[in-house]
Amino acid sequence: MADVPDPLADFVVAEIRRARGAAGMTQEAFGRGAGFSASHVSAVEGGTRALTLDFIKGADRALSTGGLFERLVSKLGTPSWFLPWLDAERNATQLRYFEPNLIPGLLQTEAYARAVLRTVDSLTDDEVEQRVSARIDRQRILTGAHPPQLVAVLDERAVRLAGEGFGVVMGQQITQLIARAELPHVHVHVIPAVTGLHVGLSGPFALARSGGGVWVGHLENQLGGVVVDKDDELATLQARWENVRNEALPRRQSIDLLKEVGSQHGPQ
């Protein structure tokens, strides 16, 4: 089940525990209504077990909130449609990302993530900061004891993104991207602009492979996102992945291109 990222999880757990107490419900009674054992409830409230979307939905049922806690998670940090992908991402042994326009979230700097999120004018400053924090928190999987293999394919336009006041942010982003690309388990490949049209220009996508060998895909659009787990749809994404990967430069040449782009922004 999908984990809710810290520190949002701590806040939501505290609110669920407070609501349970106000309703006069024991952990056992709450668990029966939510669909979990008392020991599971105790572990979540004690911080030894991750808060998941299923637990949040169960809490809404047990407490008859009308979906309050699920909406709270969506409003404060992580959209509910994104939680299933977070689960796949955090438990993956292999990750594949293709992005034609932006740097993937797992490789973004804090300043770059903030600049991207601020383009959504419906988000308040607090909501932007909460989502930046959640995005940076996701990156811990790359520096853990057993990180996944991450292969990212980017279109050159994504690394040459420019604009007034964005030069320093982009320069810092390229510097971090190069540092990540030098890690043994991170591979960054760039599709050069001279390639022209290619199948990836229809949109970004991602693939995650679990330790059990199961692949899951993710597609994101202007209104949200969807997890892909049907065999025929996964086969289509795998084929498109092979296409964009074959269009990209080899790893070392991609890093050289990134260094060339970074030099245009001056020392960071």
Rank of each mutant, 00 (worst) to 15 (best):
G21I: 05
A34R: 03
D10P: 00
G21M: 05
V190Q: 09
I136S: 02
R49P: 12
I178N: 11
A88S: 14
W215T: 15
P84T: 02
D137I: 00
V132C: 09
A19T: 00
P5D: 07
A38W: 02
I136D: 05
A2V: 06
L95T: 04
G24T: 00
P192F: 04
R18P: 08
G171Q: 08
I103N: 06
A88Y: 14
L223K: 10
R157N: 10
V186S: 04
G31Q: 04
A115H: 01
D231G: 08
A22C: 01
P84I: 00
L219Y: 01
D54I: 05
V151H: 10
D137Q: 04
H198N: 12
D54E: 11
H40L: 09
F36Y: 12
V186A: 08
L95I: 08
L177N: 03
Q253W: 05
V4R: 09
Q264C: 10
V153D: 04
V73Q: 10
I16D: 04
D3C: 08
S80E: 15
D6Y: 12
A43K: 14
A111Y: 03
S74P: 03
R32F: 08
L107C: 01
A111G: 09
L86D: 06
L207W: 11
G217N: 10
S80C: 15
P104Y: 05
D10E: 14
D3Y: 12
G171W: 04
D87S: 13
G167R: 13
P184V: 02
D256E: 13
S80Y: 13
D3I: 01
G203C: 02
K57F: 02
D137K: 07
G266P: 04
E220K: 01
A162I: 00
E129P: 05
A38V: 01
T78F: 05
E247H: 12
D137M: 01
M1V: 02
A34V: 07
V41A: 00
F98W: 12
Q94E: 15
I56H: 06
I16V: 15
D121Q: 06
E129T: 07
Q172E: 11
H40D: 04
E110M: 07
L161E: 10
A62N: 12
L83G: 02
D155P: 01
G144N: 15
A38P: 12
R245M: 10
S39A: 14
K57C: 10
R18E: 10
E89C: 11
G163F: 03
H218R: 00
R17W: 08
H218V: 00
A239D: 13
L161W: 14
V228M: 03
L161D: 06
L107N: 00
L72M: 09
E99N: 08
G67A: 15
